[in-house]
Structure formats: C-alpha cells, structure tokens
Design a protein around this nucleic acid. Structure first.
Lengths: 188, 188
DNA sequence: GCCGGTGATGACACCCGGTGCCATCGACAG
DNA sequence: CTGTCGATGGCACCGGGTGTCATCACCGGC
C-alpha cells in the first residue's frame, strides 16, 4: 500500500473503517488514516471532503439508483407506490454488504458528528426523490410529503433489517414498514 | 457590553445572529462573535458547545414543551392525535418570533453545516416524542413511526408558515399538512 | 470595612480538521 | 530520451475547540 499503488480511495476507506472500529471515530485522526493507507493527510483530503465523508462514499450512487427508479417507473402508478418500490428495490445494493452495513450503522450511532452527516444524506435523498416526483407532474407539496413518508419508512426498515437475524428480505420489510406507517398515521 | 455585564449568553446570541446575517455564517469567526459581545473566544465556548449551537439555543425548551404536551395528554386520545396536537400547539412558542424565525431559516438554508445541526435537532425531537409515546404504552415501532410522521408534517408546515404572508395560523397549518400527508401516503 | 470563597472570565498553549500553493514523482506518448 | 499530465507530498496557515491556570467581580461573614 505504498505511495503509488492503485485504488487510493478504496484503501483510504478500508483504513478509515478499520481504525474507526478499532479505536472509535473521535480517537482517530485523518493523518493516521492516510498513514495507514500509505498516504499523507493532504492526499486524504483530495479523495474525501472531510473526516466523515469517507464513510458515505456510496451515497451518491445509491441516491442515483433510487431517483432513476422513480423517474423511469410506469406513468400509471401512484406516487407513493413508485417511491416505496424504488426504495424497496434499492435493497439489492445493500444486501451484499449486510455485515458491513451493521458495523457502519453502529459506528454512526456512536458519534453525533456522524449522525449529522447521515441525516443530511437522508435529507438529500428525500429532496431528490421529491424532485423526481415533480418531474412526474406530481403536485409539489404532495411530492415533498410522499418523499418524506417513503424515506421515513425506508429508514426505519433499514434499522430493523440491520438488527434482525439475517433472514429477512429488505424490500419486504420496507413495504411492511410503510403499512405500519399507514396504521400509525390513520386513514386517508 | 463589557466584560462583566449581565446576560453574556444573550449578548453572544445577538452578536452571532447580527454578524452571520451581515457577512454569512462561514465568513464569521467565533472570536469575532465574542469580541462583538465584549467577550473572548474562550468564553464563547463556555456558553455554547460550538459555532453552530448559538443558533439553536431554544431547541431544548421547545422539545420539552412538546414532550410535556404528549405525556400529559388525555389517555383516551389516539397517538397521532396527541402528537400532532402537541406540535400544532407549539406554535405559541414560535408565533412571537415569526420574523426572526424567517431570517434564521434562511441563514440555516445557506450553510450545510447549519442544515446538519438543524436536522439532528429535528431527529432529537422525533426520538423524544417517540419515547414519550412509549411511556403512554404505545407499541415501540408504532411510536417511532407516529413520531416520524408527526415531525415530518410539523417540519413541512414550519417551512410553509415561514414563507407565507404572515396571516396563517401555525397550528392550523400543521393539521392541514398532516391531512396532506395522509393523502400522500394512501389509505390505512 | 476587611477577608475569604465562589463563579465567570481571560491568557496561553495546544491539537486537529481543513486549505492554498508549489514542488515532486511516476507513467506514458512521441 | 524528453515533455507532459495527473497524483502525491511538503509546508505554511487559518479557524474551531479544549485543558489549565491566573485573574477579576461579587457576596456573605465577621
């Protein structure tokens, strides 16, 4: 893992995760992460915008996946159905990394800094989904609320999925959580 | 506003808001805020945990108000009704500061750092409301989802309220937004 | 009217996250 | 062999945030 070895970004991600899990997020410095990957602090910040971002590398691709699914869904489907199906199907991106997901989730729970970053990624996803709905001619306020409800169900399902014994299907969990949300909120 | 004048915390809040609005959040340093209030940087950090927190001073009292309303609501009322009424009634704390609220909202929108802090305050409110529901013997998952839906409606109504012409009633807006959320999510 | 305690503030040094700027290195084309 | 280009390093710097100790105003007891 010397200076000119390939995949510097990937090495940094792996080093960061390793050190964060070993000693806790706050106790690790960016210089140490870089050193562990055979690089320097200055180079770390060329690959990731800040100390937290290294844990959220996949967020952009994930969001694109969901937005694409919303944009390209059949025009006859109801907004909420489109959103929840897109989010449920995103499980295909998550399933292969179930164990990693769990460790990452616990790490995030251990630091308010990381929680803040996690929340703004969810907010970004919500805004992007709402925007995609508006492109489908959904009324703006309804688009916002549908996106919020969908992402709330997704987020709660995500936690349930990360916690359980590993036999559950993510997409199914998302749909069930939306049904629970419907019960919680009362009849339309 | 010398060294030993009273209400140092309040002076810091006022100085921060003034300077942030004048020059933008990122362009102001904590040392400048302290100086403007007749204090030193070290003292600023004895009153507020970090550069952002000075804009969220009322959050704790606000959350307590909402949680109390949930805890002390009549035992015969449905969870969602309890939550949305508590949030709608919180408007009495907001109404007197409508203009300030608007300026603060725009300021937060101008900085991702501030957005992150805003989101974690909302998440904290959501968690506290969910916990209050569980004390009312609401089933845990339903408590979480009810709190999420309620706070989502509150948050969206808050934006609508800050944007409009100043004649609308906050509580009414919160209830209407929940109705819209019900329409968005579909029948129970 | 002096005296000691207490809480708020200041002074100072320090660490770390983050950035601007320029030097340097390796690979690769010609 | 050489020139170019992208990735990396070196370095100085800024600002947020903290630990530690000194200093100040105030207040109660005597």
């Amino acid at each position: 893992m010397g200076r000119w070895d390939p995949d510097a970004g990937g090495r940094l991600q792996h080093s960061a995760m390793t050190l964060y899990l070993e000693r806790g997020y706050e106790a690790v410095t960016t210089a140490e992460i870089a050193e562990h990957a055979g690089l320097k602090k200055r180079t770390y910040f060329r690959h990731f915008a800040d100390k937290r971002e290294v844990l959220f590398a996949g967020a952009e691709a994930f969001q694109s996946f969901v937005v694409d699914a919303v944009v390209h869904a059949g025009t006859d489907r109801a907004p909420m159905d489109v959103v929840i199906t897109a989010l449920a199907d995103s499980g295909t991106l998550l399933e292969p990394y179930r164990d990693y997901t769990r460790a990452r989730r616990d790490l995030i729970a251990s630091s308010t800094d990381l929680q803040e970053r996690d929340l703004i990624k969810l907010a970004s996803l919500t805004a992007a989904v709402a925007e995609a709905l508006r492109e489908r001619e959904v009324e703006p306020l309804q688009a916002t609320l549908t996106a919020q409800a969908g992402v709330a169900a997704f987020s709660t399902a995500y936690d349930l999925w990360a916690d359980d014994d590993g036999t559950s299907d993510f997409g199914r969990l998302v749909h069930q959580t939306l049904d629970n949300l419907r019960r919680a909120i009362g009849a339309a």
